[in-house]
Design a protein around this nucleic acid. Structure first.
Lengths: 231, 231
DNA sequence: CGATCAAACCGTACGCCGTACGAGTCAACC
DNA sequence: GGTTGACTCGTACGGCGTACGGTTTGATCG
């Protein structure tokens, strides 16, 4: 009988043979692989959203049967985890202005983090999962190293990292949640004005409308960084 | 034919009759109602988590048929929305120390917000939804009013509110995501030490272990409030 | 060459899901 | 009695994740 044991055992073991594509002479598709599955999953998520990804549809897009996916992947959860991390690659700050200092580097990485997730809004709805893939860990490592070099005390380092993480995640989720279409906006406003005697202040401030999300994100980030660093 | 039209039309219209419980002479359960459905949904979510809530199970707990729920509720999404808001009621700061000032009131409300969600961890996984129920709106209204009275400029008010919201949501989601059982903790540590040459800083700082979440939350909140207020 | 074996693939089936549909029940009112 | 409207629910449909076991394929070895 075949193997197919528990997670990451014999699967993902790379082909040791010399032939680049083994078999599959009649099939036009390249053979399945973790990478191809994840890449296609991201495409599907981008196109159809979180509910549009099913194992059957994913397999269809890959030109394979649904159950074939389970050779490369433990279950649907793992597909989500891999897709989330796949979208969060970070290549570092732009080299053109190399002398922007640690703070510029941190701001750049965090704004890029948020932007990457907003480019794939489904990623925000996957958030409450602890999948710490290599890309997420890489960003945390960069954050940790940069803050440490900037003089943040070791005792405060973890709190500082988590504060920034929290802020970025909250801002991203909120931005996705309220990324309403125009009619939704109108409906929300409608509902609020109907209740203006109950919520006069937020009705008057038009909190749910015309807000500068990007600017507010940057502002709050600055506040946080001001507080987090000794100088 | 019956009515059952679109959202919040004829449903939820309270009984005008004098009889306290109409019909249902043989059934021991009280009649269905939005309130009872939501309360039971919260119980079920607390007990079984987000995947444990299905319309059939919810109906079973209520002693009714699954399809009966749809008279009082549009769909499962609405059950989630109502459950989320139901858990976020806020009764205001403790009256004993009435003179703690605006900042104490804000901190109290935000810490209570986070605590309420941590008491029902499923609420964090429901987050990326824009359901603005009365309790959430009430908290936003309180925040808006208090900050405004504290002297935050109107131009900065919305940014201030969203920054605090973002921070609280991110911190709560993160806390839930990493609320690992002991073996999960060990596994995460295992995975990290295996990769210590790739992520030396976060491995050394033990970022994923022994962290003071509550203290870090309070710290970051203070940073944010420091930056947000003029004085 | 033929035998063997693991890797990779996939068809079928099971139990569960959300909910459309329409029929049923019952109190209130004409 | 007849009608109506609020409410309950049995059945059914299409779709889901995935357990299970069978099949194909290429590599390896005699």
């Amino acid at each position: 009988m075949a193997a197919k044991r528990s997670g990451a055992q014999n699967k993902r073991s790379q082909r040791k043979s010399v032939s680049p594509q083994a078999g599959q002479a009649l099939r036009s598709e390249p053979p399945l692989s973790r990478e191809r599955i994840v890449a296609t999953a991201v495409e599907l998520l981008d196109a159809e959203g979180v509910d549009g990804l099913t194992m059957r549809r994913l397999a269809d897009c890959l030109g394979s049967g649904a159950m074939s996916l389970y050779w490369h992947v433990d279950n649907k959860e793992e597909v989500f985890d891999l897709a989330l991390d796949a979208v969060l690659e970070y290549r570092g700050p732009p080299q053109t202005a190399g002398s922007q200092g640690w703070r510029g580097e941190v701001v750049h990485m965090l704004e890029d983090w948020r932007a990457s997730m907003l480019r794939h809004p489904w990623s925000a709805s996957l958030l409450p999962r602890r999948a710490l893939g290599p890309n997420i860990l890489g960003r945390l490592e960069m954050l940790s190293k940069t803050l440490s070099r900037a003089g943040v005390a070791d005792a405060d380092l973890n709190a500082a990292i988590w504060s920034l993480w929290n802020y970025v995640m909250g801002a991203t989720i909120t931005r996705v949640s309220f990324d309403l279409s125009d009619e939704d906006m109108a409906a929300a406003q409608q509902r609020l004005t109907g209740l203006s005697e109950r919520y006069p202040t937020i009705e008057r401030s038009r909190l749910l409308l015309d807000n500068d999300w990007d600017g507010a994100f940057r502002k709050g980030l600055d506040f946080l960084l001001d507080g987090l660093t000794p100088g």
